[in-house]
Design a protein around this nucleic acid. Structure first.
Ligand code: MN
Ligand code: MN
Ligand code: ZN
Ligand code: ZN
Lengths: 135, 135
DNA sequence: TACATAAAGAATAATCTTTATCTATTAAGT
DNA sequence: ACTTAATAGATAAAGATTATTCTTTATGTA
């Protein structure tokens, strides 16, 4: 297991075993919901409190260590902060994939038309993944 | 006030006064949260139950009369279903605007690259609106 | 390495938020 | 007008999130 002590400290968070495990769970699982994270954490810390999960998710969000992805017709999932990217959601199996699309020129165009100063995008494309539509 | 009886019936919903008022509130206000809709409704129906709001929002969602817009760092808002469009969110004043961008070619490209069959997009662009960055 | 201290974890209560239940009322078809 | 299934309102229940309290611990300093 990678040592996430530095990562946590860089984001002004004390490196507790629980937090290190949370970061590791996100690293290994990609996009994780609160309940799902709680289950994962219970395996390592049989007496961890759900409040600890919520508290840390919020702290990590505030300190930009993790990012919340809001999905249509589903609960939010959380991931380690990476460079801005979009998401593919399979409506059948629930699979979530990252996709890197360069939205710069598109955003510039919208910015000019609307006179909005845009600095962030949340883009979720829903449908059926390869496995779910290939039969 | 427009008569929304037909609109409701077309979506398999009985045209009750409360529902007509909900549709009207969405038509007049654009993007509305649950609590906000509740306040608006209380003015016309001083004894309306919050459960009625939730029940109807869910029914209208199921019957595709309204659409849920999930926003980063904010509660969901609901709007009358229109043709697919994207949203601009001002981080400063909370203003939400519709924007029609043709995402077809972009979606086609992503579909080919990822082998996902995409039939829906949720695109929210955040930043500062004209009023909030022009000074 | 030991100490001091602010921060964090666990347990649990409290506070939202949303849904379920029950009864009286009503929309809508006949 | 009559019938009936659906809905509204009141309220309880369930679910999700946050606050509180007390104990433990990470981390900087001597
Ligand atoms: Mn992602
Ligand atoms: Mn809209
Ligand atoms: Zn799938
Ligand atoms: Zn603004």
């Amino acid at each position: 297991m990678i040592n996430y002590t530095d990562t946590l400290r860089k984001h002004n968070l004390k490196a507790t075993p629980q937090r290190i495990a949370i970061v590791d769970a996100l690293f290994l699982n990609g996009h994780v919901s609160t309940e799902s994270l709680y289950s994962i954490m219970l395996e390592k810390f049989s007496s961890i409190s759900l409040a600890t999960i919520y508290k840390n998710i919020n702290l990590m969000l505030e300190n930009c260590l993790i990012y919340e992805v809001k999905l249509p017709h589903a609960k939010s999932v959380y991931e380690l902060t990476k460079s801005s990217h979009s998401h593919l959601l399979c409506k059948k199996c629930g699979n979530i994939e990252d996709v890197d699309i360069n939205l710069e020129t598109l955003v510039d165009k919208i910015s000019k038309i609307t006179e909005f100063q845009i600095d962030k995008t949340d883009f979720v494309l829903s449908g059926n993944c390869k496995n779910c539509h290939s039969f």
